[in-house]
């Protein structure tokens, strides 16, 4: 496996993208996937149940000091920030919102960048804020691999555009090839998703 973890951030419009993604990703030989979407407090279990029943994925809500396992998806709870520690356990914090968001994508991504270095694959999807851009820059700087949703395919292009203003992502992809791109990258195959700069 090329990666020890995958982080995914998204906001407005990302729910449908994630539904398709989790329905299509392999069920085995996958590293843990950590997800931040901007969900309200007290709604976390509803999202978990929805994804699990509709996509057949193994999603759980992130718990404090949890040790992540492969083939599972971890969703950051609404009303808290989720962070990865250097020993790759999860923590929660109730610090004030970052980029008006709690959970914030930047908080997860910046801590994951430190915990996983070049063993991290990061995905930033559609969204109406710039949350996640700084996190992607940190992941890029520490050797992680970055995927940004092509803003022309995004219901709300603000979030991917904010990331593109800071970094040149390794892959710029449309939602319909996202699952294949991730699978190929994880297995070490040449990804089918368009390489940024290829044209």
């Amino acid at each position: 496996m090329q990666f020890d973890a995958i982080v995914i951030g998204g906001s407005h419009g990302s729910f449908d993208v994630l539904m398709n993604l989790f329905a299509s990703l392999p069920r085995s030989d996958m590293p843990p996937i950590f997800v931040v979407i901007h969900i309200p407090r007290d709604s976390t279990q509803d999202f978990v149940t929805h994804f699990n029943t509709r996509c057949g994925c193994r999603m759980v809500e992130i718990e404090d000091k949890q040790v992540p396992e492969g083939d599972r998806v971890y969703l950051a709870p609404g009303g808290y920030h989720a962070l990865l520690e250097r020993d790759r356990r999860l923590s929660l914090s109730s610090d004030e919102p970052v980029n008006h968001a709690q959970p914030s994508i930047d908080v997860l991504f910046e801590s994951a960048a430190v915990a996983y270095g070049n063993r991290l694959l990061a995905v930033l999807l559609t969204g109406a804020s710039s949350d996640g851009a700084a996190g992607m820059a940190r992941i890029d700087a520490l050797g992680g691999t970055t995927i940004v949703q092509d803003p022309t395919t995004a219901r709300s292009p603000v979030m991917p555009k904010a990331a593109l203003a800071l970094i040149r992502p390794d892959h710029l992809v449309a939602p319909d090839v996202l699952a294949d791109t991730i699978r190929d990258l994880v297995s070490g195959a040449q990804p089918r998703g368009m390489m940024h700069g290829d044209g």
Binding site: L83, E85, S91, D95
Partner: peptide, 9 residues
């Protein structure tokens, strides 16, 4: 203290 939050703060 959990380090990730402490470093952030």
């Amino acid at each position: 203290y959990s380090r990730a939050s402490l470093e952030r703060r």
